[in-house]
Write a protein that binds this DNA or RNA. Structure first.
Length: 903
RNA sequence: GGGCGCAUAGCUCAGUUGGUUAGAGCGUCUCUCUUACACAGAGAAGGUCAGGGGUUCGAGUCCCUUUGCGCCCACCA
C-alpha cells in the first residue's frame, strides 16, 4: 500500500522538490554530449538559445511566456529522443542596467556616476550584477525551465566578450565598420546616441510657429513654419519648390537668419511640398534628417547648435547655455519684438522619444561607429526568402522583408560605461589600432601611449551573437560543432528587428550559417481584459503571485493554451485558477487510478476488451495523432486544449466512471480495467508533460510505484507517438476501427445522457434507481453487453433493465404501456421508463410532440440538402454521412409518431 | 502615407487543407457532499460567427467592400 495521496494536488510541496530532482538527476543535460567519450555525432540535436533576460531584471509575465513555450518545445523533443540543449543565460542590458545602478547610487550615496568615475562605477555595476544576477535565473527555474544550467552564459563573460571583439574586428577588417560624424538620434537625458529602433514616435499636440525669413536688403520676406523654433539658430538655407510661383523669384537670393544675422541662400528642391505649410522650408542640416539630406545635395554647411545635454551651444549666439525649450521660448519672444513673427497654431504631430528614458530625442551630428548594413541585410533577406529560415507565423516574413529592404546603417556606439568597450585604440599621433587583444603599442607608429575608445557597443551587438557565442564561438569547441546551428529561435514579435534580424545577419556573416532554421514568434501578454500591461496603469500581471496562488503548471497551461503564434493573449487570475482546477482534476484521476491498482488483488492485466476499453483507446490514438500534427505545425494551444478535453471529458467523466463498475466486480474484469486505466493515464501524463511538467512528473512517479512490472520508459524520455505501437498489446492503426468504436460508444453515451436528462427534467431523485426497457433492434447485443454500465451511469436498476430486439416479440412486457411510461427515442433505439407514480405524465405528449417536431425539421432539412446539387457534387463520403443522418432522423420521427398515437 | 492583426455565447477566447445542428473556460439557472476530485458531478439556458456583396452543391473558414478597435513601419516642415 502506497502512502495516501493528498486529496488536492499540493503544488507547493511538489514543485521545488521535483525541480531539484530533475536538476540533480541531470535531466536537463543533452543525453548525447560532445564533451563525453561516448558521444555519437550522428544523433540529431535539438537546440534553443534562451532569449537572455536582463541580468538584473525581475521575472515578468513576458518571461513566463517564453519560458513556457520554449520549455514545451524542449521537453517535447527530449521525449521524442532528440539530444536536446536549452542554453540559458542573461544579458548585461547596457542602458537599462546602468540606469538602475545610477539611480541606486544617487539614492543611497547621493553621487553621480561621473563623480565616482568610470572604473569605480563599473566595479559597482558588477557588484550589483552579483547581487541581483541570480534572481532572474532562479525565478526562471521556478517556471520549470529545463535548461542546462551548467552551460549558463552572460553577455559580459570573458568568452562572450571575446566573441564580441572577434565580430567587431572581423567586420572592421572587411570594411563593414566605419566611424564618422553623422546625423544620429541623441538622447539628451542619457547622453548617448541611440539607434533608430530605440526611438519611439508618439502623436502629440505641438505648436506650429510661423515666422518671416527676411530677404537681404529688402522688406520682402518668405513665410516659414517650424515646430522647433530653436533650430532656426542652425539654419543654413531656406528651400522652396522649383515650380512654386510664389517663391520662384527668390531662388538664389539671400535671406537673413532671425536674431543671428547670418546670411543664407534660398534654394530650390523638389522635396519641398508646395501644399504644406507655407510652402517654404527652413533647412537645419544639423538637427533634421531630411534637411541633412537636402544639405548634402546642395553642399550646404552643417551647423550644430545643441550640446550633449541639448542646451544651445556656442553656435547659438546669445542663447548659448539655454536649455532647448527655454531657448525656444526666448528666441520666439525676441523674434516677436523684432516683428518677425506671423502666428502660431496648435498642431498634431509625431514626436520622437527615447524608448528608454522617454524624453524627446534630438537628431544631432555626432561622431559614432556604424555597421554598413546593406551586405548583411541582403544575406539575411536571402536566408528567409530561400527557406533556410522559416518564420512562424508566416506573415511576419513580410514584415521582416520590409524592414531589411529599407534598413539604414546601424549606429553601434553608445556613450555609456556598462558594456563591451569598443576594441579600438588611439595613439597620440592620431593612428587607430583595431585589435582582438589589447594592444601594447600603436599598430602604425609603435607609440606606447594608447587610449582606448571611450564608447561601448550597443547591447544588441553582443546579443546578436548569442546563438553561437554561447556555444564557444569563435573557437571550434565541441559544443559549437555539434549544437550549432541551433534549431528554433523562440521570442516575441516585438524584438523581431532588434534581435532576431540581427542574429540572422550576424550568424550568416560570422559563422556562414543561419543560426536557426525556425523562428517562432509569440505575442504579447495582456491583462484579463485585453488591456496592455503597464506599471502606471497598475494592471501588472505578476507571474510570481500567480504561481504562488495557483501553481506553476496552472500558469504555464494558461499561457500555452491561450496563445496562438504571433497573437497577443490575455492572462489573468481567473484563467489560471481554472487551470489550477485542471491540474487538480488530473491529480485526482491519477489518485483514483493509483489507488485502484494498489488495492487490486492481482496485477493489472489485459483481458478481453470491453467497448469502453476500445473506445478510450481509440480516442487516445486519435488524440496522439492530432497532438503530433498540431505540434508539428506549432499549434501548441490547440494541442493543449485537446488533451484537456480528452482527460477531463473522455477519460475522467466516462472511462473512469465505467471503470468503477468494472473494478467493483473484481477478478479479471477489474484487472483489465486497471490495466487500461494505467496505460491511458500514463499516455495522458506524457502528452501533458511538456505543458505541466510538475504534476505529471509527480503522478507518474507514483504510478510507476504501483505498476511494478511495467515496461514504461521514463516519462521524460517517451513520447506517446513513439510508444503507442510498442506499448499497446494490440496496436490499432486502422481509423475505421476507431470510428466504429467511437460510434458505438456514442450511442451508449446518448442513451445515458437522454435518461439523465429526463430524470432531471422530471425531478427524479438522483438516488432513485428506476426500471427501464430498451428496444434496441440491431444494437441489442451491443447494448446488452453494456447493460451494467448503462444501469450504473444512468441510475437504473440493473435487475429491472430489459434490453429487447423488438417489442413485438414480447407483447406481454408491461413496460410497453405507453400511458404509464415516458419514452425516449435515441437513434434507432427506444427507451421506456415507467415513471408513473413518480411524476405526472400528463405533459408527456407535449414533450414527445416537441421532439417529433425537431426530428421532422431535421428530416426536412436533410431531404432538401440531399435533393440539391450537394448529392451530385460533394464527395461521396460526405454525402453518405448525411444520408445516414437522414435515415436516423426518419426512424426517430417514425418512432415518435407511433408513440404519440399510443398516447 | 504604407502594411498587418482583431471583430464568434453576458465576459475572455478556441475553431489552419471550406463539409452542412459552431466549442471551451468563467459567469447564470436546477439538482447532488454518488468512498478520485465541491478546485467536483449531472442537467439546462445562452450565438442571424461586426454589416454588405461575391465564389461554391456547401462559407465562421476563401475573395471584395464598409464600419469599429488595436499594432507595426514611414523624413512632410
Amino acid at each position: 500500500m502506497t502512502k495516501e495521496l493528498p486529496k488536492a494536488y499540493d503544488f507547493k510541496s511538489t514543485e521545488a522538490r521535483v525541480y531539484a530532482m530533475w536538476e540533480k538527476g541531470g535531466y536537463f543535460k543533452p543525453w548525447n554530449d560532445p564533451n563525453q567519450p561516448d558521444f555519437d555525432p550522428t544523433v540529431e540535436p535539438f537546440v534553443i538559445s534562451i532569449p537572455p533576460p536582463n541580468v538584473t531584471g525581475e521575472l515578468h509575465i513576458g518571461h513566463a511566456m517564453f519560458v513556457s513555450i520554449e520549455d514545451l518545445m524542449i521537453r517535447y523533443h527530449r521525449m521524442k529522443g532528440y539530444s536536446t540543449l536549452w542554453v540559458p543565460g542573461t544579458d548585461h542590458a547596457g542602458i537599462a542596467t546602468q540606469l538602475m545602478v545610477e539611480r541606486d547610487l544617487l539614492k543611497n550615496e547621493e553621487v553621480t556616476r561621473e563623480e565616482i568615475g568610470r572604473e569605480e562605477f563599473i566595479k559597482r555595476t558588477w557588484e550589483w550584477k552579483r547581487k541581483y544576477g541570480g534572481m532572474i535565473t532562479n525565478q526562471i527555474r521556478r517556471l520549470g525551465a529545463s535548461c542546462d544550467w551548467e552551460r549558463e552564459r552572460f553577455t559580459l563573460d570573458d568568452g562572450l566578450s571575446r566573441a564580441v571583439r572577434e565580430a567587431f574586428v572581423t567586420l572592421y577588417e572587411k570594411g563593414l565598420i566605419y566611424r564618422g560624424p553623422r546625423l544620429i538620434n541623441w538622447s539628451p537625458g542619457l547622453k548617448t546616441a541611440v539607434s533608430d529602433l530605440e526611438v519611439e514616435y508618439s502623436e502629440e499636440q505641438a505648436t506650429l510657429y510661423y515666422f518671416k525669413y527676411k530677404l537681404k536688403d529688402s522688406d520682402e520676406f518668405i513665410p516659414v513654419a517650424t515646430i522647433r523654433p530653436e533650430t532656426i539658430l542652425g539654419d543654413t538655407a531656406v528651400a522652396v519648390h522649383p515650380n512654386d510661383d510664389r517663391y520662384k523669384k527668390y531662388i538664389g537670393k539671400t535671406v537673413i537668419v532671425p536674431m543671428m544675422g547670418r546670411e543664407i541662400p534660398v534654394i530650390a528642391d523638389e522635396y519641398v511640398s508646395m501644399e504644406f505649410g507655407t510652402g517654404a522650408l527652413k533647412i537645419t542640416p544639423g538637427h533634421d534628417p531630411n534637411d541633412y539630406d537636402i544639405a548634402q545635395r546642395h553642399h550646404l554647411p552643417v551647423i550644430s547648435v545643441l550640446d550633449e545635454a541639448a542646451r544651445i551651444n556656442e553656435n547659438g549666439g546669445q542663447y548659448k547655455g539655454q536649455d532647448r525649450f527655454d531657448a525656444r521660448k526666448n528666441l520666439w519672444a525676441d523674434m516677436k519684438k523684432a516683428g518677425l513673427v506671423i502666428k502660431t497654431e496648435p498642431y498634431l504631430t509625431t514626436i520622437p522619444r527615447s524608448q528608454r528614458g522617454g524624453e524627446i530625442v534630438e537628431p544631432m551630428i555626432s561622431t559614432q561607429w556604424f555597421v554598413k548594413i546593406e551586405p548583411l541585410a541582403k544575406a539575411a533577406l536571402e536566408a528567409v526568402r530561400d527557406g533556410r529560415i522559416k518564420i512562424v507565423p508566416e506573415r511576419f516574413e513580410k514584415v521582416y522583408f520590409n524592414w531589411l529592404e529599407n534598413i539604414k546603417d546601424w549606429c553601434i556606439s553608445r556613450q555609456l560605461w556598462w558594456g563591451h568597450r569598443i576594441p579600438v585604440w588611439y595613439c597620440p599621433n592620431g593612428h587607430m589600432t583595431v585589435a582582438r587583444e589589447d594592444p601594447i603599442q600603436c599598430a602604425a607608429c609603435g607609440a606606447k601611449e594608447l587610449h582606448q575608445d571611450e564608447d561601448v557597443l550597443d547591447t544588441w551587438f553582443s546579443s546578436g551573437l548569442w546563438p553561437f557565442s554561447t556555444l564557444g564561438w569563435p573557437d571550434e569547441t565541441p559544443d559549437y560543432k555539434y549544437f550549432y546551428p541551433t534549431s528554433y529561435m523562440e521570442t516575441g514579435y516585438d524584438i523581431l528587428f532588434f534581435w532576431v534580424a540581427r542574429m540572422i545577419m550576424s550568424g550568416l556573416e560570422y559563422t556562414g550559417k543561419a543560426p536557426f532554421h525556425t523562428v517562432y514568434l509569440h505575442g504579447l501578454v495582456r491583462d484579463e481584459m485585453g488591456q496592455k500591461i503597464s506599471k502606471t496603469k497598475g494592471n501588472v500581471v505578476d507571474p510570481l503571485i500567480l504561481m504562488d496562488e495557483f501553481g506553476t503548471d496552472a500558469l504555464r497551461f494558461t499561457i500555452l493554451v491561450g496563445s496562438t503564434p504571433g497573437n497577443d493573449t490575455n492572462v489573468g487570475p481567473k484563467k489560471v485558477e481554472a487551470n489550477r482546477n485542471f491540474a487538480n482534476k488530473l491529480w485526482n484521476v491519477g489518485r483514483f487510478v493509483i489507488n485502484a491498482i494498489d488495492s487490486l488483488q492481482t496485477a493489472p492485466q489485459l483481458g478481453d476488451y470491453t467497448l469502453a476499453d476500445s473506445w478510450i483507446w481509440a480516442r487516445l490514438q486519435q488524440l496522439v495523432r492530432d497532438v503530433e500534427r498540431l505540434f508539428q505545425t506549432f499549434q501548441y494551444g490547440e494541442a493543449g486544449r485537446q488533451i484537456y478535453e480528452f482527460i477531463w471529458s473522455d477519460f475522467a467523466d466516462w472511462y473512469v466512471e465505467i471503470a468503477k463498475q468494472e473494478l467493483s466486480e473484481g477478478g479479471a474484469r477489474a484487472a483489465r480495467a486497471a490495466d487500461t486505466l494505467a496505460r491511458v493515464l500514463d499516455m495522458s501524463l506524457r502528452l501533458l508533460h511538456p505543458f505541466t511538467p510538475f504534476v505529471t512528473e509527480e503522478l507518474w512517479d507514483h504510478l510507476r510505484q504501483v505498476v511494478l512490472d511495467s515496461p514504461l520508459k521514463d516519462l521524460a524520455n517517451g513520447w506517446p507517438e513513439v510508444l503507442i505501437v510498442a506499448r499497446w498489446p494490440e496496436p490499432r492503426e486502422v481509423e475505421d476501427w476507431e470510428e466504429s468504436k467511437v460510434t458505438d460508444f456514442s450511442l451508449m453515451q446518448e442513451i445515458i445522457r437522454s435518461i439523465r436528462n429526463l430524470r432531471a427534467e422530471k425531478n427524479v431523485a438522483p438516488s432513485k434507481r428506476i426500471a427501464a426497457t430498451i428496444v434496441a433492434g440491431d444494437k441489442t447485443n451491443l447494448l446488452k453487453e453494456q447493460s451494467a454500465t448503462i444501469a450504473s451511469l444512468a441510475g437504473l436498476d440493473l435487475s429491472q433493465l430489459t434490453i429487447l430486439e423488438s417489442l413485438k416479440k414480447k407483447p406481454e412486457e408491461p413496460l410497453q404501456d405507453a400511458s404509464r411510461s415516458a419514452v425516449l427515442v435515441v437513434g434507432s433505439t427506444e427507451i421506456y421508463l415507467p415513471l408513473a407514480g413518480m411524476v405526472d405524465l400528463s405533459n408527456e405528449r407535449a414533450r414527445l410532440e416537441k421532439e417529433l417536431k425537431e426530428a421532422q425539421s431535421q428530416v426536412e432539412r436533410l431531404e432538401k440538402l440531399l435533393g440539391s446539387d450537394f448529392a451530385n457534387k460533394a464527395p461521396e463520403a460526405v454525402v453518405a454521412k448525411e444520408r445516414e443522418k437522414l435515415a436516423a432522423f426518419k426512424e426517430t420521427a417514425e418512432k415518435l409518431k407511433v408513440q404519440l398515437e399510443a398516447k
